[in-house]
């Protein structure tokens, strides 16, 4: 088996100011399904094209942003092995018991030099709806809204991006698919744990623990256009797009949830193989790197985070 260790992004816990408005946005508009509400009020969501129990958790809070992102690893033994490696690197590791989130096994947690909490887990129960597996039709429940197929990745903002790169490569066995350098040093990295162009990304920013966007994958460029129609029709706050990223080549639109957290829906992007060289960008083409058609950053890209 080619994929070992960290398999893929698992879930992201998003802070929301108005729970019902958030549920409506992520289910009716982005197209996720509500799995359940936990005893502490957190709401668990998934795409109908994901097997595991949930991929998005909404937590009511008095400020926006995200609490954590998790990755699923291949086995329980991987959890023990990653814990040793993370501790050896010098980061404390804490333990979250199975069931703290319904349907999810034990997790280990740690905080990166950028101030972000990440967790690893090996076990997740399935929940409905999920893809069919015997003589499968293309879906078990007809897609709705933007038709998000999965929680795909997140982009975080914080300091010490160089150390994050070193940590994710050396300790979690990620590879750097693309990087953006400026005369002031490394500005941003796009990291892959599998064969996608990115599973998590970081941009250098003075404030730690910030979230730029949480991203969902769509089937096609036409679906990105349909998402844009939904964004205007339901007066969702649009940031930029539809456009394409030079980095990853994803076809994209950025918008905001009702609490001001940036979302992305995107399609496409290249396949990243473990032997692919890192693609590099410099400050002279930063506009094209981020927004390939506009060829310039909008003011919000570097300054608007939660």
């Amino acid at each position: 088996m080619a994929l070992t260790g960290v398999l893929r992004p698992g879930f992201v816990q998003v802070r929301v100011l108005d729970m019902q408005a958030a549920i409506d946005h992520y289910t009716k508009r982005i197209g996720l399904h509500e799995v359940m509400t936990g005893e502490d009020g957190r709401v668990y969501l998934k795409s109908g094209d994901e097997f595991d129990h949930h991929s998005v958790i909404l937590r009511k809070a008095d400020h926006a942003g995200s609490d954590l992102m998790s990755f699923k690893v291949a086995s329980e033994a991987d959890l023990d092995s990653f814990e040793k490696r993370i501790v050896a690197y010098g980061y404390p590791v804490d333990h979250v018991p199975a069931g703290e989130q319904p349907g999810i096994g034990r997790r280990i947690g740690f905080t990166t030099a950028s101030g972000h909490r990440f967790e690893l887990y090996a076990h997740a129960e399935f929940s409905e709806p999920k893809p069919l597996i015997h003589n499968p039709d293309v879906w078990s429940v007809e897609p709705h809204g933007m038709g998000a197929r999965r929680f795909d990745h997140a982009l975080f903002y914080g300091p010490n991006v160089d150390e994050n790169l070193d940590f994710f490569e050396k300790v979690l066995d990620f590879r750097c698919a693309e990087r953006l350098d400026t005369p002031d040093g490394l500005l941003a990295i796009w990291l892959s744990c599998g064969m996608k162009a990115h599973d998590v990304a970081f941009v250098k920013h003075p404030e730690p623990s910030k979230t730029h966007h949480v991203s969902f994958e769509l089937e096609s460029w036409a679906d990105v256009g349909h998402a844009a129609d939904i964004i205007t029709c339901y007066d969702i706050s649009r940031d930029v797009g539809p456009t394409r990223h030079g980095i990853t080549r994803g076809q994209t639109i950025y918008f905001f949830d009702p609490s001001g957290n940036r979302n992305e829906v995107f399609a496409g992007g290249y396949t990243y193989y473990p032997d692919s060289p890192t693609r590099t960008w410099d400050h002279t083409e930063i506009g094209k790197a981020i927004f390939y058609y506009e060829r310039q950053l909008n003011e919000a890209f570097l300054s608007v985070v939660t």
Binding site: S237, N261, R262, A300, V304, V305, T306
Partner: peptide
Amino acid sequence: VGCRRGGC
């Protein structure tokens, strides 16, 4: 102009 939704 940022998120237009009270978050950023």
